[in-house]
Simulated assay, not measured.
Amino acid sequence: MATNILVTGASGFVGKNLSTFLQNKECKTNALSLRNENWKADFLKSVDAIIHLAGKAHDISNVSDSDEYYKINRDLTIELFNGFLNSDIKKFFYFSSVKAVADSVEGILTEDEVANPVTHYGKSKIEAERYILSQNLPEGKKVYIIRPCMIHGPGNKGNLNLLYKIVEKGLPWPLASFHNQRSFLGIDNLNYLIYEMLIKNDLQSGVYNFADDKALSTNELISTVNKALGKKAKLWKVSKGLIEKTAGLGDKLKLPLNSERLKKLTESYVVSNQKIKSALGIEKLPLSAEEGLIKTIKSFKKEK
């Protein structure tokens, strides 16, 4: 069992939560800052595993310098992985993303999908993945590439914040005529999976998707937010054609609802978590998708 763990990106949302969770499981965690030029000297011989969370997050506003994605997400990961290969450390976890494979999904995304990322974020992540998978692993070492879908939890509003604000203000949801399915990943389920991977010594190296057990439609999501806030959902089934025309107008007049935002709010993105569950011999994750979301939404209320 890996009990002494090095974590990069330990000050981020996932890093903080995962480190606390592992410490409560009597694991020792050490933060490794890759911003420190002498980080290579911090490789500890007594460390059992590295969890590499640090990276440049996806900038949906597209104002980031594209080179930064490759320097941080690809080049730094390669450098860290090479350090792992030359160390006594047994396990390496690389947090990639489902966006390293596809920006949009038809059907259900599995680990076998041929990668075709469209953003610099996704491309930088898949290039790091490919390097890691192309290397020969010394005997006794294991490598796990984690592809999470949208992560949420108390303290991290992310994309849920827009829906939360709509519901909190008592506004109706006008896109109820659109039907979609999206996968989410609650931080509690992420923590649980990583811990189970750390303690399972015969888990095969490879790529593993992380997602909650069930995908939810945006309508179900709106209903869940209402439930968490003790409100009654207001789902308006405005005609799709009218909404699409309004979004088209929004493109020209720079309105809040435009074609791109409509696509993001109504498209499907379903991710399978069957491979990791089968590998760990578990039937279901600790929290349902709805339970995890209610926990997150209730935390927004407390923050006010």
Rank of each mutant, 00 (worst) to 15 (best):
G230K: 04
K264M: 09
A215N: 06
W236D: 01
H179R: 12
I60N: 10
H58T: 03
L229G: 01
S134T: 03
D65T: 05
Y69C: 10
S268I: 01
G155R: 07
A279Y: 06
F84N: 11
G186E: 04
L293K: 10
V101S: 14
I222S: 06
V207F: 02
L34A: 11
D112W: 01
K40I: 06
V167E: 00
H120Q: 05
L163V: 13
R130F: 01
G248M: 10
L190A: 01
L22V: 07
G83L: 02
S87C: 08
N17R: 13
H52N: 15
V47M: 04
N36A: 14
E283M: 01
I166A: 09
S205P: 03
L262F: 00
K227W: 01
G241I: 05
P117D: 08
I72S: 02
L137D: 10
K275M: 08
L285M: 12
K90C: 03
G230C: 05
Y131R: 08
S61M: 09
L242M: 13
K227V: 02
E113H: 14
F21D: 00
G83M: 02
K302L: 14
L133H: 02
K245T: 11
T3P: 00
E260F: 09
L216T: 01
I50T: 12
G170Q: 05
G9Q: 03
G12D: 06
G186Y: 11
S61Y: 04
F81C: 10
I72M: 05
N219A: 11
N159L: 03
A289I: 11
R147N: 10
R182W: 14
L293Y: 11
L255H: 08
L193Q: 00
K28A: 11
D67A: 13
G250N: 11
I145C: 03
Y192G: 00
Y121I: 04
Y121G: 07
K298F: 03
I294F: 12
K16E: 14
E244F: 00
T3R: 15
F93N: 06
G15K: 06
K142C: 13
P286T: 05
I132L: 14
G281V: 09
K25R: 15
D251I: 07
C149R: 03
T110M: 03
F81Y: 15
G140L: 09
